[in-house]
Computed example of a mutant assay.
Amino acid sequence: MIFDLTNTRFMTPFGIVLLAGTIAECLSQEKKVRYRRPSNRRTRQFLSGIGFNKFFQLADVEHKIESSHVQLRRLDSIDYLLTDQIVDVFSYAITMSDGLQGSLKLALNEIMTNVFDHSGSAKGCYVCAQAYEKEEIIRLCVADFGVGLFTRLKEKYSNLKNSYEAIKLAVREGITTRSGQEGGYGLSHIRRFIEVNAGKMSILTGDGKAVWNYGGLKTKLRKQTMHLPFSGTIINLEINVDRESVYFLINSEDEIF
């Protein structure tokens, strides 16, 4: 199998984690894999700096990544330092209260905990984030190659019919597959944060994809059906840079944004 990036000039975190995870899956199945690097020098430097080349032990000259990015990581367990780094990248874009920063860290930790507890992924999850100064946005992507939301949620919510319904259910507060335990706050908190920020959030799993676009005059939730199902789950966030406003919780006791 050949992964040809010869003509690639630009990659978002979504593309980076999807490509990294796919290559890793192929390697784990002992498939023959070849990788053709981008011919564009700046793209090669970027992939090296974001950790892609090091991740696959590809020999290359190291290129220092900017502090406004989070390098490509594969996690087998919760890494609290990484969630701190992600929130630091968010803080690069917006001014947040201490309460909001803490709530975001808890939400991100829960999202990744769900991967390790419920996704059935033998490879954990892949995480990457980038800041785009010209576009004034930050993108964060978390992906696993597990069984997907529909398969996991249907074990407890048997009335689910498809992956799209599973996605909509997953972002509701209190929805969890943990038996007799509280949970289900990660995605719901993140969605509310994205709404306040007028950003975007998309979730792809199985043959379903949902996109929440809070920009513009009307809020849009768009449904898509994928022609090629993805067995795991990908969460992609787009956050607007806004250094003029201050983002905070309604009050210090609130758990929502």
Results as ranks from 00 to 15, higher is better:
A107M: 07
A143T: 10
K54S: 15
I239P: 03
H63R: 06
I137D: 02
K156E: 07
I175K: 08
V211S: 06
G180R: 12
F46K: 00
V61K: 15
R42G: 08
A129W: 05
A107Q: 03
M96R: 04
F193E: 05
D79K: 00
G49A: 05
L100D: 04
G232A: 05
Q45W: 10
C128A: 06
R152S: 01
L221Y: 12
V70A: 10
R178Y: 07
G99A: 09
S39G: 15
F230P: 01
V142K: 01
C141A: 14
F56C: 11
M201V: 08
I86C: 07
I86K: 07
R42N: 13
Y126L: 08
G51K: 00
C128T: 06
K220L: 11
L81A: 15
P13V: 06
N7Q: 14
I203S: 02
V61C: 05
Q71E: 13
T6Y: 14
S231H: 14
D144W: 00
R139F: 08
K154F: 03
G206T: 06
D60T: 04
F55K: 06
T83V: 14
Q224A: 12
S119W: 01
I235R: 00
S67N: 13
T43F: 00
G215H: 04
L169Y: 00
R42A: 12
G124Q: 02
F14T: 15
D88Y: 11
S97N: 09
E238M: 12
I138Q: 09
S163I: 08
S158Y: 11
I16W: 01
I194Y: 04
E195N: 14
Y92S: 11
K156H: 07
Y126F: 14
